[in-house]
Nucleic acid binder design. Structure first.
Lengths: 128, 128
DNA sequence: TACTGTGTATCATTACTGTGATACACTAAA
DNA sequence: TTTAGTGTATCACAGTAATGATACACAGTA
C-alpha cells in the first residue's frame, strides 16, 4: 500500500488517504478481501496521528468500499464496479499517463498542470 | 472574471480563488493593469464572506501576482513569465482540453479523472 | 488461557477556515 | 467638497482538521 501525502495541496490528510485508497480499488489494484494496513501501522508510515487514519477508514467504510472488523483488521469489500468499468479505468490510466508525460516534457510543473486541469473541468462544467 | 468553487474537493475556498486567478494570469487571460473584481463584489458573486476573498487577494499579493491599492482596487501586476512560457501554457491547455474530452467520452466522472491524475503525479514523483 | 495484533472510544488542545458584523481610511470622480 | 466605491482592520463565533495520549474491547493464535 503506497500512499503519498501532498502537504501543499490544501486537501485534508484524511481525504488524501481516502482518495488514494479509493483509486486503488477503482483500478483493481486492491480487490475484495485484501487487507489494508493496520491503523497504527499506516499512521506511523505516514507520520500522522492514528486518529487521522481512523477518520479516513471510517469514511471509506461509510462509502461501502471497505469493512472494519473489530480486532481483525480492515478489508476491501466486494466492488460494485462492473469488469468493463475496471477495464476502462485502466485504459484511461494510460491516457492520463501519456498526457502527464507530455506536459512535463513541455516544461510544466505539477502545480501548473493541476491548475490547467481544474480550469478545464470548470470550463466544461459551465459549458455543459 | 469567472470563478467556480468546488465545494466537494476539500480545498479551502480562498485557495480555490487564488489558484483560479493565478491560472488566468498564467495563460494570459489576465494581464498587467487589469482590475480584479472588488472584494465585496466577488464575495457576493461567490456567496462567500468578504473576509475569505480578502484572504485570497492577500495571498495573491504575497505571491507578487496582484497589487492592492487602498481605495482604488486590485490590479494585476507585471508578469515575470516569459512570452515563450505563456505560449507553452496555451499549447498545454489544448492538450489538457483534449484529454479531458477523451476521458469524459470514456464515461469517467470528474472526480474519478481527478484521482487518476493525482495518482499519476504521485507515481512519477516516487519514480523520479 | 495468555499474548499479540487489531479496531474503538474519549479527551484536551492547537491551528486553520469561514462567517457576520462593524468601523475606519483612502481614491477618484461628480 | 461631497459622494460612491474601494481596501483595511478588528472582533467574536462556529466548525473542522489534526495531534497526542490513554484506555478499552475483540480476534486469532500459540
Amino acid at each position: 500500500m503506497i500512499i503519498r501525502l501532498n502537504p501543499s495541496s490544501g486537501v485534508p490528510i484524511y481525504l488524501q488517504i481516502v482518495e488514494q485508497i479509493r483509486h486503488s480499488i477503482e483500478i483493481g489494484a486492491l480487490v475484495e478481501g485484501d487487507q489494508l494496513p493496520a491503523i497504527r501501522t499506516l499512521a506511523e508510515e505516514l507520520v500522522v496521528s492514528p486518529n487521522t487514519v481512523v477518520k479516513a477508514y471510517d469514511d471509506l467504510e461509510q462509502q461501502g468500499l471497505i469493512r472494519l472488523r473489530h480486532g481483525a483488521g480492515a478489508y476491501v469489500e466486494k466492488s460494485n464496479l462492473a469488469k468493463s468499468r475496471l477495464r476502462r479505468f485502466r485504459e484511461a490510466s494510460v491516457v492520463v499517463k501519456e498526457t502527464v508525460r507530455k506536459l512535463r516534457s513541455m516544461g510544466l510543473g505539477d502545480d501548473e498542470s493541476r491548475r490547467l486541469f481544474e480550469a478545464e473541468w470548470i470550463e466544461e462544467a459551465t459549458t455543459r
